[in-house]
Design a protein around this nucleic acid. Structure first.
Length: 571
RNA sequence: GCACCCGUAGCUCAGUUGGAUAGAGUAUCAGUUUCCGAAACUGAGGGUCACAGGUUCGAUUCCUGUCGGGUGCGCCA
């Protein structure tokens, strides 16, 4: 069992035994190392409820709690904290067990069907930096959910529908007629810009574009084929980015807005049948008392425009309905910019009221802040343009290549490229994932690639140091008992044993930065261990320590893999 | 106008359901290599947790107000 649930359950039993069955144990990792490994904070609250002296109650709990073989010391401190030091033999056994476990000790949850909606690009344009956070946060969360035993569906809810696609198809026809179509599609961004320019300046073209939207939605074969062609090209651009980013999304995860097109009239009907829909200023809307507009009146969510068209709220409702009824999801994580918070609050409220999703299905907006430039304003090029994502990734790899070449000029170029690609992308992703996602953060090339501090390169380096120990060892006794004696060994083993708790916290709260902080701590503990506890020296191998190293390498690799970051055998 | 997010060391950021003396990294300064990778490690200085009240054994955390920053609020997605 994971450490935290184990300690909490043992203390809960002890609290019951001393007459405080309703009190929470409130066990947490010790806030300071000198307090031990864990601390139990629940005594003060329980003592207050029972009108007892907290330190006396703490002593009773220590007498009652069954932590034989788990804790070596339990001490009362301050107003009534109980400080817990885990037994070295227990930690040694934990490491032993985790080493043999494919999940490295991470407890498996009862399988639920979890959907993670992320990336969700607009296929009309090329991916830009605005898509980075959703793509990498969502990917990490999907990996974490899988790792704790969930059945996971990744969903790339791409924008492949709406008025702009009529414009793009119309322009594609023009380009085909002049024989430039394939070439033009290679630069999707330019294609969009030129199509938009045509749309704005030429009334005839604009009318054609509008006409094509109608034909597209009406199922016209020729227009649909052109649309399909455009979507394929755009998705191939995305897939190239996903591969470079080491993100697991592929074509099988794509279910675009167009997929729900035929359901939209049904959504309107069902909302109307349930008495939720009202006509207002010609549009079909749902009024929600929970939300007020700027006049203090109930906020309207528009479901159908007065011209009969639908909006993205309608599509999102259709998606919820489909996911619940057809895909049987239990939980859906929407990894989307924080600026859409209100939209999701309204969406989820309507979905529950309309019974598109029952109460026990969890719909969660996993909001994130904006990536800022060093001036504290949204990240742009020097000239103020939006940065294409592929350009950002290329720059990360180029910068990493320059650094690797500086550090290791002796390596051949292909090797340096391979290292640089993993380091550059890893640094970029880690810099993002290691911040708490809800707030804006400032993007800084030097900080993320500095190879010092809480960065991906530091973690990747720590991994290569562990692996290099094994390269020095030809053979060792894999059945040797693990014996922990030094403080640095204890600290490292304790950190390794916390893996399960941390991964579960990330799965529950969708906060990848907790995993980053944890891995950084593992790497730090390993470095201290490495300085103080020789593993393989003067031809003598310490098999016990080597096994601790083995788990360290496995946890670092697994943890970084959950973040979508590659490890290297050498760098 | 209303709603949501935010304000913590020079800078970048943590701080888990309220817990002990508010922590990391970076930068600065000072150390460590006949020793498994120094892309490392050790140490030092650095704080009115925006401000003012309140709740309580205890508040960076919860509540109220003020100031400051960001975002959103009916026919785009």
């Amino acid at each position: 069992m994971s450490l935290l649930p184990l300690l909490n359950s043992r203390f809960a039993a002890a609290l019951s035994a001393v007459g405080a069955p309703d009190a929470q144990p409130l066990v947490q990792a010790a806030s300071r190392p000198e307090f031990g490994d864990y601390q139990m904070n629940g005594v003060m609250g329980a003592a207050k409820a029972l009108k007892l002296n907290p330190r006396e109650l703490a002593q009773k709990i220590i007498d009652a709690v069954d932590l034989a073989g788990i804790a070596s010391t339990l001490e009362i401190a301050g107003p009534g904290f109980i400080n817990i030091k885990l037994d070295n033999a227990y930690l040694a056994a934990y490491v032993e067990t985790a080493l043999k476990d494919e999940h490295l000790g991470v407890e498996q949850s009862p399988a639920q069907h979890v959907m993670v909606e992320y990336s969700s690009v607009n296929l009309a344009k090329e991916m830009h930096v605005g898509h980075l956070r959703s793509t990498i946060i969502g990917d990490a969360l999907a990996r974490v959910q899988s790792f704790v035993g969930m059945s996971v569906t990744r969903q790339n809810h791409v924008g492949d529908w709406g008025t702009q696609f009529g414009m793009l198809v119309a322009f594609l026809i023009e380009e085909q007629q002049s024989g430039n179509a394939e070439l033009a599609l290679k630069d999707l961004e330019g294609f969009y810009r030129r199509a938009k320019a045509r749309f704005d300046e030429d009334e005839n073209f604009a009318n054609t574009a509008r006409d094509y939207v109608v034909k597209l939605q009406g199922g016209d074969a020729e227009v649909n084929a052109l649309w399909q062609r455009f979507v394929e090209v755009s998705l191939s651009h995305c897939n190239a980015v996903y591969q470079k980013l080491n993100v697991l999304l592929d074509d099988g995860d794509v279910r675009g807005e167009s997929f729900y097109n035929n359901d939209l009239p049904i959504i309107v009907d069902e909302l109307r049948e349930q008495g939720l829909l009202v006509e207002s200023e010609g549009a079909q809307v749902v009024f929600l008392d929970e939300f007020k507009n700027k006049d203090g009146e109930p906020q309207a969510s528009i479901i159908q425009k007065k011209d009969g068209g639908y909006l993205y709220a309608t599509t999102d409702l259709g998606a919820i309905r489909f996911r619940v009824r057809e895909l049987k999801i239990d939980r859906c994580l929407y990894v989307v910019d924080a600026r859409q918070a209100l939209h999701f609050q309204q969406l989820f409220t309507i979905a529950k009221k309309a019974k598109f999703a029952p109460e026990n299905v969890s719909l969660e907006h996993i909001a994130f802040g904006t990536m800022m430039g060093e001036d504290g304003k949204p990240f742009k090029t020097r000239s103020g343009d939006v940065v294409k994502l592929v350009d950002l990734l290329d720059e990360a790899q180029e910068r990493a290549f320059a650094l690797v070449s500086e550090k290791n000029p002796g390596l051949d170029e292909a090797t340096r490229r391979e290292i640089a690609n993993a380091v550059g992308i890893g640094a970029l992703k880690y810099a993002d994932l290691s911040k708490s996602r809800t707030t804006d953060y400032i993007f800084n090339w030097n900080a993320m690639l500095s190879f010092e501090g809480n960065t991906a390169p530091y973690l990747q380096y720590a991994y290569t140091r562990v692996k290099s120990i094994f390269r020095k060892v030809s053979d060792y006794d894999q059945n040797a008992a693990i014996v922990l004696t030094e403080p640095a060994e204890h600290a490292l083993a304790l950190e390794l044993a916390r893996f399960s708790d941390v991964v579960h916290a990330v799965a529950k709260d969708s906060q990848p930065h907790l995993l980053c902080a944890y891995l950084y701590s593992v790497a730090t503990m390993f470095s201290r261990f490495y300085e103080n506890c020789p593993v393989n020296q003067d031809g003598v191998t310490n098999a016990s320590r080597l096994k601790v190293c083995d788990l360290t390498a496995k946890v670092l690799a697994a943890g970084l893999n959950l973040l979508g970051i590659k490890v290297l055998e050498a760098m």
